[in-house]
Simulated scan of single mutants.
Amino acid sequence: MDSLSSSQAKKLVLLSQGLPPKKKAQGSAISHTLSAIEQLGYIQIDTISVIQRAHHHTLWNRNPRYQLNHIDELVENREVFEYWSHAAAYLPMRDYRFSLYRKQAFKTGALSHWYKPNHELMKSVIQRIESEGPLMAKDFEGERKHKGGWGGKPAKQALETLFMQGDLMVSSRSNFHKVYDLTQRVVPETIDSSVPTAGEYARYLVTQFLKANGLGLAAEMSYLLKNTKPLVMKALSEMLEEGSVVQISVNGLAYFVLPGFLDLLNRPLARSKLKILSPFDNLLIQRKRMQALFGYNYLLECYVPEPKRQFGYFCLPILWQGELVGRMDCKVDRKTSVLNINNLVVEGAVEKWGSSKQESFVQALREELTGFMDFNQAQELIIHKANLAGING
C-alpha cells in the first residue's frame, strides 16, 4: 500500500474541498456557487446568526463572488433542494435520486422519524397544499381542531414527516421559514426519480464523499446516516476489488481514494491565503477526522455552559498555510455594524513562530478580515482579546 505524508494528505483534502478558492473562476458568480454545492455534495443549514449563517459562510469561503441571494435563486430555479445529509442541508438537484433511498425508508418504517405519523392529519395537509398551493406551518395555525388534531404543532409535525418521507419538498423560504409544496411540483421532469438500490446508494455515498474530501474512511462516509455503514463497507470491498477505489496509508491508517485523485497533488495550494471558516463547514464537520488529519481539536462551545467555555460561544477555525492554526470567537452587532472579535487564539507555541511568520500571519488575517467584514455587513472591527502581539495594530 502506498502512503502519503501528513502534509500531502492535508493538501489533497483542501484541494478537494476548494479551500482556499481559486482567484479566478470560470462563469457567472451563481454558477460558481452551484459548482461548489455539487462538488461538496451538500451545504449544511444552520440557524445560528451571530455572524452570517453557516450555509452562506461556507459558500462564501469557496466563491469570493458569492451573494446572499444565490441559494434562494438556485432553489427557485430547481437546481438545489433541501433535505437531510447528516443534518438539514441544501443538496444539488442532480443528486435528487439518491435522496429517495432514505425517503423510502422513512415512508416504509425502515427508518423511524422523530415524530409519530398522524396519517389522517398528513392526508389533510396534503389535500390543502394540493388545492391551495405552497403553505407554511403558520398557515395551519388557528384551524379548528378535528379528529386527529389540527393546531400549529401537530400540523408542523405532519409537514415535517411528509417532508422527510418525500411527499413534500421545500419550494422556498420566507424569512427563513419553510414553504412546503408537493414534490411533483418542485422536482423538474428531467430529473431521474427512480429509487436507487442499496448498492447504488452506497456507491454514491462512497464516490461523493471521496470527490468532496479527497480521502476517507468507511465511518466517515456513513457519518450520522443510520444503518448505512454496513452498506458502505460492502460497496468499498466491491469497489476495491474492481479497482474503482484504492487504498493509501496516512499516519498508519488505511484511507480510500478514487483512482487518479492523487494527481491533484500536482496542483498548487494557495497556502498564503488565510480563510476564516464556519464551525459547520464541510471541511470541519467531522471533528474526529480533523483531529486525525490536521491535529486540530475543535469543540463548538455554544452548546457548552458559559462558565465551562474555553475559547468562546462561536469560535471560527482559521485556515492558513495548509493548516488549521487558530480560532476566533466573533459576533456582529448589527445595530452598530461592528464585528467584534471577542477572543482570537493562535494555536500551539506562538512564541516559537518567529517574527517573520507572525508578521505574515497578521498580514494574511488583516486581508481576509477586510472581506469578512464586507460579507457580514460590518463597517468597524474591534478585537477585544488576542494571544498574538501586533494583531490590533
Rank of each mutant, 00 (worst) to 15 (best):
residue 316 L to I: 03
residue 87 A to D: 15
residue 79 E to C: 12
residue 222 S to A: 14
residue 24 K to N: 10
residue 124 S to M: 15
residue 53 R to I: 02
residue 93 M to R: 00
residue 54 A to G: 07
residue 288 K to D: 15
residue 70 H to F: 12
residue 90 Y to A: 08
residue 233 M to P: 04
residue 33 T to M: 10
residue 297 N to W: 14
residue 129 I to Y: 11
residue 335 K to E: 12
residue 263 D to Q: 04
residue 319 L to V: 04
residue 151 G to Q: 00
residue 32 H to L: 08
residue 3 S to L: 01
residue 386 A to P: 03
residue 63 N to S: 07
residue 114 W to G: 04
residue 369 L to A: 12
residue 139 D to V: 04
residue 40 L to I: 03
residue 131 S to H: 14
residue 232 V to A: 02
residue 77 N to S: 12
residue 48 I to T: 12
residue 155 A to E: 11
residue 276 I to F: 02
residue 23 K to R: 11
residue 358 Q to H: 09
residue 283 L to H: 07
residue 243 G to N: 00
residue 198 A to T: 07
residue 18 G to I: 01
residue 148 G to C: 07
residue 118 N to C: 05
residue 138 K to D: 10
residue 366 R to F: 10
residue 263 D to E: 12
residue 273 K to E: 14
residue 285 I to P: 01
residue 116 K to N: 07
residue 296 Y to H: 15
residue 327 R to S: 14
residue 357 K to Q: 13
residue 113 H to Y: 07
residue 221 M to H: 01
residue 286 Q to E: 14
residue 284 L to Y: 09
residue 57 H to N: 09
residue 171 S to P: 01
residue 348 G to H: 00
residue 28 S to L: 04
residue 377 Q to N: 14
residue 362 V to K: 08
residue 159 L to G: 11
residue 55 H to W: 05
residue 219 A to R: 01
residue 85 S to L: 07
residue 348 G to M: 00
residue 279 P to I: 02
residue 44 Q to V: 08
residue 361 F to Q: 05
residue 94 R to H: 05
residue 122 M to E: 15
residue 253 L to Q: 15
residue 374 D to Q: 09
residue 206 V to Y: 01
residue 38 E to K: 14
residue 231 L to P: 03
residue 234 K to G: 13
residue 229 K to N: 13
residue 364 A to E: 07
residue 298 Y to T: 11
residue 112 S to F: 08
residue 235 A to H: 02
residue 322 G to W: 01
residue 121 L to R: 13
residue 45 I to R: 04
residue 295 G to E: 03
residue 212 A to E: 02
residue 357 K to P: 10
residue 266 N to M: 13
residue 30 I to E: 11
residue 113 H to M: 09
residue 376 N to C: 03
residue 115 Y to I: 02
residue 115 Y to C: 03
residue 136 M to V: 06
residue 68 L to R: 09
residue 32 H to C: 10
residue 14 L to C: 13
residue 253 L to D: 15
residue 317 P to I: 05
residue 53 R to P: 07
residue 112 S to N: 10
residue 162 L to W: 02
residue 205 L to E: 09
residue 6 S to K: 03
residue 97 R to Y: 03
residue 254 A to F: 04
residue 358 Q to A: 14
residue 60 W to H: 08
residue 8 Q to A: 12
residue 235 A to Q: 02
residue 16 S to I: 09
residue 288 K to R: 15
residue 155 A to K: 00
residue 197 T to R: 06
residue 91 L to P: 03
residue 218 A to E: 01
residue 158 A to S: 08
residue 187 V to L: 06
residue 289 R to M: 10
residue 121 L to S: 11
residue 251 N to Y: 09
residue 363 Q to V: 12
residue 358 Q to G: 12
residue 15 L to I: 02
residue 197 T to W: 09
residue 233 M to V: 09
residue 204 Y to W: 14
residue 313 Y to Q: 06
residue 343 N to K: 05
residue 290 M to C: 13
residue 145 K to L: 13
residue 338 V to P: 11
residue 130 E to R: 15
residue 361 F to S: 08
residue 217 L to P: 02
residue 105 A to C: 11
residue 140 F to T: 02
residue 57 H to I: 04
residue 80 V to N: 03
residue 297 N to V: 05
residue 344 L to D: 08
residue 373 M to N: 04
residue 272 S to G: 12
residue 293 L to E: 01
residue 241 E to S: 14
residue 375 F to L: 11
residue 135 L to W: 05
residue 359 E to Q: 13
residue 52 Q to H: 13
residue 345 V to R: 14
